[in-house]
Amino acid sequence: MHLDTRLTVFWIAHLIMLGLWVLLMVYLLSIWLKSRVPRTWASAPWWRKLIFAVAYVVQVVFSCKLWPLLKSFILDGLLQRRLFQKNKLRWITHMMVFGSFLVMGVLSTVTGVVVEFLPLLGMDPEKVARIPLIGQLFHADVWWVALVNELLGLVLLGGMMMVLYRRFIKKDPQLRTGPIDNTIILLLTLIALSGVFTETFRLLADFTVNGVLAPAPELLPLEKYPKALYDVFGPQWGFVGYGLAWLLGLARLGQPIWNVIYNTVFWLHFVIVSALLYYLPFSRFAHVIAGPVVVAHNTMLDAEKARHRQKARQAKEAGAV
């Protein structure tokens, strides 16, 4: 069986990094839990507070509050209803960055399952590739996978351009830009750019024949690109990456050189993504995790308060009648 060393190292490194990140988050949680948690004493140990916090969440989930909570999580947390009502352009910018990241995150997770997890369980790549809906995610050169990834990358880049414009050119007076903002903006922009170049150099590394870019599925081993996907082969649908690859291909470098460049850019991309992941809980980007939860919870509480007031008013009116 063909062993892709690069991919194996990637997954090992990735899982170790993720594991460490989870440990870091647990440590951070233990500090958050030094605060007060309702219904338990202020100086209770953190695990006790965690139990009470989880109990509260479970209680909300199994109550009539779940629907308003979910509704607010989606409308206010994920779709940013308030921002939409306030300023359409800012909403579009936010959704371009957040939405594309979210969709790419979901796609990457599903892809990880399809490419790594299922074969690891002993499933034949041919069979994996034939799984309805998600099977074709087995390779990024399937035309629609290439197109979707390309579009998402471009949307993210476009969003970042708008962020840069608003913050550094238009200089919206309500914005405060410090190192904490610059670091995040830099990381996000680098992720978007390095993503495009990673794809470009992958194409060159995979499909350079006698110094010429000539994509064909047969160039890839069957474990990597199963026959079931031959009909949907179409790397050119990732038009920016493909166009760049074509352009750079004019340099007529050999496949081994492209391979070295590709590996370098790939790991660079990996390091930047990891840096963002690690910086996340210590930066303004923590709002990506905390924001939707907090807005859903607070909107639910506000709605609850309003409902109580309404009920009290109605009860009073009924009493007066």
Partner: peptide
């Protein structure tokens, strides 16, 4: 002393997007 804050407030501080709406 983090006991001055509730867990909700800790999360709220993390949830701040630095959008500056409050400044305006």
């Amino acid at each position: 002393d983090l006991k001055r804050f509730t867990l909700r407030q800790m999360l709220e501080m993390e949830a701040c997007t630095r959008c500056g709406e409050c400044i305006a």
